[in-house]
Structures are given as C-alpha cells and as structure tokens.
C-alpha cells in the first residue's frame, strides 16, 4: 500500500509538469468514495431495454452520488463479452455493471467459466416475466387452444424472439416440458432479439413469440398482436387482462428476464455500503418508477445478499431447463 502511495505522489509531480493539475483527490482508499466518475458497463447494445434501463439508473445514481456515471456498452457474444468485462474490472468501485439473466445461462452452454458468483451483488432493479404472444388473426382464441394445437401436431409450430438457447427460447421450452410435452414440440427459429422476432411474427414467418410483454407492447396496442398468457405467478401490472399460465393452463411456471447492478468480486465493503442505499433511493424514486411503468417494465427489488441468492436460484432453475432441453453442455 505504501508503495502505491509513493508511486502516486511521484506521478502527481509528473502531472503538475503537464500543467493541467488542479487538486489531488482523496486518498486511494474507499473513504470519500466516490471521488471520480464511475463507469457502468452494459453487456448489450444501445437502443435496447437493458441499455435504456442502465441509462436511467445511471443518471439517477449520478444525482445520488454527486459523480458522473458513464454508461458504457460492451456488446457481443450474447452478453459474454460485457459480463466478462464487468467481472475483470478493478474491484475499486469505479467500475460497476448491469448484469442480466444471461449470466445464469452462458456458463451452462460452455461459453465461459463466469457465473453470478463472480460478482459482488448490489441490487436487483427489474424483472419482466415471459409471455406468449401470437398474431391478432391467429386461429387460437386462448392458451389452451394453442396447447391443443401443439399437442395435435408437435414440431409444426415455430417460435422466435431471441437466439438459440436465449431466455425466451428457454421460456417456451421449459413451459412445454412442464406440460409434459417435448421441449422441441415448438420449433425454435433464432433471431437477434424480440423486435426482429415480432417483425417475423407479423410477416407470418413464425407462429408465436414468447417475449416479455413490454417488448410486444406497441404491437399489442396497435391491435396486431395478442398476448395469451404471462409465465408468472401474478399478472402484469400494465396488462392486468392477460391471464397467467397458472390460471389458464394450470401450470405454474415462472420465468423472465431480470436486470440488476453488480460490481466485480472483492470490492471494499465501504463501496457496497455506499452504493446499495444509493441504488435503493434510485429504485424508490418517482422518476425511476415513472420511467419503468411508461416503458411497461416491471420493477423488482432485492439487494446485497438477497440479490445474490436470487441470482443463484435463477442460475439453478435455468440450468435445470437447459439440461432438460439439451442446450447445456
């Protein structure tokens, strides 16, 4: 520690020589944290729901902490690249990240060694259950009718909404297996995300899209898409008329996408102690609630240990489905 201090002093001199120095910030420890801008890594691209969630959390957190929060996209590899970048960052509290449900999926596929245990959990900010969406003019009036159709001709209907082995793929495959059907009874057509999947649904390319309700919202509002059920124990607040799978099919099946703030493993306790209450304030702010409800996103809170447990449980249940479906390595 002493060594680094001397090192930094020497460099300060160099900094003065450069002629741009103003003051020295507090010591390099967590006291006075944060005293410089924080980077928030997002493993998904600009323009998606994850990105906009990160950006609203970032701008509200900025007001709480009094330091700029730079939202940084690290995309690619179905989230592996960005999630790795978060885990590999210096655990000094100046790099945090937005983890998504995929962290509990990619290691089962053998893409990375990384699991949710490689992070310091800070706060769960959002959860959106999967739902079953079909075209407005589809032949099936409700979910039981759709299930009958799948049973009658297994392997003929197609679904899309994410890549091979993505969260919505698992949602439908797991649901089918809960019904006692083959997970492949609905053929999965990979797509780059829910938006292209829905576009394909409209174009008649696929028969159903098991994405979250907010993603299908514009088309539901436009009267082009019907949501038959949500895969959750309780109905969606924004769409109370859409029944749960429990209600209409008698199958209890909870699956969905979540987003939460994490830090690299081993950040000082002071950092977590500063960030978690700040995030809680953000979560409870009217701006955040307003933003999420306008986008149709669901809010769900858990912090620290509880969030860690949540991620571990999510990890286990996804792993079970992936093994069942044959996607796990």
């Amino acid at each position: 520690m002493l060594g680094t201090h001397i090192h930094r002093r020497a460099l300060l001199a160099a900094g003065i020589a450069l002629g741009a120095v103003t003051t020295l910030a507090g010591a390099a420890t967590a006291q006075g944290y944060p005293d410089r801008p924080i980077t928030l890594i997002v493993p998904w691209g600009a323009g998606g729901g994850t990105d906009s969630t990160a950006r609203i959390v970032g701008s509200l957190l900025e007001q709480e902490l009094g330091q700029p929060i730079n939202v940084v996209n690290r995309t690619g590899g179905s989230g592996v690249v960005g999630h790795s970048a978060i885990a590999e960052a210096d655990p000094d509290g100046y790099t945090i990240g937005l983890a998504t449900v995929e962290i509990g999926m990619m290691h089962w596929q053998g893409l990375t060694e990384l699991t949710s245990a490689d992070y310091t959990p800070l706060a769960l900010m959002n959860f959106d259950p999967a739902s079953v969406n079909v075209r407005e003019d589809a032949d099936w009036a409700d979910l039981p009718a759709l299930i009958e159709a799948i049973k009658a001709n297994p392997g003929t209907l197609t679904a899309s909404g994410t890549g091979q082995g993505g969260i919505w793929h698992l949602a439908i495959a797991g649901f089918l297996s809960k019904l006692g059907l083959e997970p492949g009874a609905v053929r999965w057509v990979p797509s780059e995300g829910a938006a292209p999947g829905l576009q394909d649904l409209m174009a008649g390319g696929v028969d159903l899209v098991p994405c979250s309700i907010p993603e299908a919202r514009a088309l539901i509002d436009a009267g082009r898409v019907r949501s038959l059920a949500v895969m959750s124990s309780k109905p969606n607040e924004a769409f109370p008329d859409v029944p749960t799978t429990q209600d209409v099919a008698g199958v209890s099946w909870d699956i969905g996408a979540w987003r939460g703030i994490v830090a690299p493993k081993g950040v000082p306790d002071e950092v977590a102690a500063r960030l978690i209450p700040a995030l809680e304030k953000v979560y409870n702010s009217s701006e955040y609630a307003d933003f999420m409800s306008k986008q149709g996103f669901g809010r769900q809170w858990a912090s620290g240990e509880a969030f860690g447990t949540f991620m571990a449980e999510s990890n286990e249940s996804l792993g079970a489905v992936m093994k069942e479906v044959g996607l796990a390595k």
């Binding site: 691209g45 600009a46 323009g47 998606g48 729901g49 990105d51 906009s52 938006a195 829905l198 576009q199 409209m202 919202r217 514009a218 088309l219 436009a222 082009r224 933003f291 306008k294 986008q295 149709g296």
Partner: peptide, 19 residues
Amino acid sequence: VFGIPGDTITAIVIGVLFL
C-alpha cells in the same frame, strides 16, 4: 407505425417515444 425499429437509431428513438 408499429414500434418496430428500422435501425439502431430508431430503436433508441422508440424507447424515448415510450418514455
């Protein structure tokens, strides 16, 4: 018309419209 993004630019715009 349908909330389907034509490119990444409009994908971001759609989010702002909803907001």
